[in-house]
Structures are given as C-alpha cells and as structure tokens.
C-alpha cells in the first residue's frame, strides 16, 4: 500500500478496509503522538489525544473530500486544536503566557542539574508559552513548511515566523548555560 495516496486510503477506511486503517496509522499515528507529546509533555496525554484524532478519522472518513485539504495538515490541525483545548482545561487560558511549572516538574534550571540531555531540552520546551511551543513543534519537529504551520495555527506566515524566532531565542537562552556540555555529551554519547 506504499504508493497509495492518503486520500484513497481514507476512502478505503470509510469502507471498513482493515489494511487501509493500519496503513493510515503507520503513516500518521506516530506524528500525531509526537505533536501531542511536545505540546503536553507526557506520553499518556499524547496517546489520548492521538486516539481522539484517529477516532475522528474513523468517524468522518466517509465525508472526507479528496483535494480539499492535505490529509496530514488536517491531522495536525485537529491534533493541535485538541492539545490547545486540553491546555485550556488545565488552566492555560493565555496561550502566550509562560506556563507555571507543575509542582512535581523540574524548572529548567533544576532540570539543568539532571544528567539527561533529553530531559533538559524537554523541560525547556515545556517552559515556552503554548503558541511558541506549537510553532517550534510544527516547524522543527514535525517538519511542516511555514505555510503549512500557518494553516494549522490559523495565523499568517509572518506570525509563525515571529513565534518561531521568539521560541528559538528562548530555548537558546534556556539551554545556554550548559550548551557546550550538552553538545559534548551528545557528540561522545556520554
């Protein structure tokens, strides 16, 4: 099924084709989980969001209009909306505000004291305001173009570029203290 376009797979999903369902998940489920993981900061919440996204695919597959939108971009948009809804329910009403660290979570500086590079970067990401975190997630981690990211976020390309610039500068500052150590560890695998 490698060469079958997403639109055709969605049509086959609507007809109950098991192989099409598996192929569609093979192509996109990991990316939706990754998007939600970056936005929400934990795997359980990310899998819940991904489940909700794909349940909507199953439910609405027969209404999918080929050519109206790129399926992967649409998936990102649904996943993004669900993530932002979840953040609002958690009290994050201002999507441009810097999140309060959860009591159990390390601050970026505390996280810096930890040895795991991945956790330091993750902590720095989670300290970004949600819209900046979304921009860097869509652009850097999900590989969307600036135009696609703007469609997903329902903002202009210029707004995406501004959010990205602020996000990367904040991350650079948050990770500056031990940047050299982190890069050395990564290069040596230590």
């Amino acid at each position: 099924m490698d060469g079958i376009p997403d639109d055709e797979l969605v049509a086959a999903v609507a007809k109950g084709d098991e192989d099409a369902c598996r192929e569609l998940m093979k192509r996109h489920l990991g990316r939706v989980v990754a998007l939600a993981r970056r936005m929400l900061g934990n795997q359980d919440d990310a899998e819940e969001i991904a489940q909700e996204v794909f349940l909507r695919v199953w439910k609405h597959a027969e209404k999918w209009e080929p050519g109206r939108a790129q399926f992967s971009t649409w998936l990102h948009r649904v996943g993004t909306n669900l993530c932002l809804d979840r953040l609002r329910k958690q009290g994050m009403d201002d999507l441009d505000a810097i999140p309060e660290p959860a009591s159990e979570d390390p601050t970026p500086y505390e996280a810096m004291a930890q040895k795991d590079v991945a956790r330091r970067v993750e902590a720095a990401l989670q300290q970004l305001p949600p819209r900046q975190r979304l921009a860097i997630t869509l652009s850097h981690y999900q590989g969307l173009t600036n135009i696609e990211a703007a469609q997903v976020m329902d903002v202009t390309v210029e707004a995406v570029e501004s959010l990205l610039g602020r996000a990367r500068r904040a991350l650079k500052a948050a990770l500056a203290t031990e940047k050299d150590e982190l890069l050395r560890k990564m290069n040596t695998g230590a």
């Binding site: 998940m25 489920l29 990991g30 989980v33 990754a34 993981r37 970056r38 795997q43 990310a46 899998e47 991904a50 590079v117 991945a118 956790r119 970067v121 993750e122 990401l125 860097i136 850097h140 981690y141 991350l171 990770l175 940047k179 982190l182 890069l183 990564m186």
Partner: peptide
C-alpha cells in the same frame, strides 16, 4: 538544532 533533536519522542 542539535540540542533540540536530543529530545526524541516515544513511538505509539
């Protein structure tokens, strides 16, 4: 970029 890529995510 290299620092950001040091934070991988788990598979479904």
């Amino acid at each position: 970029d290299a620092l950001l890529n040091a934070a991988p995510v788990e598979k479904p």
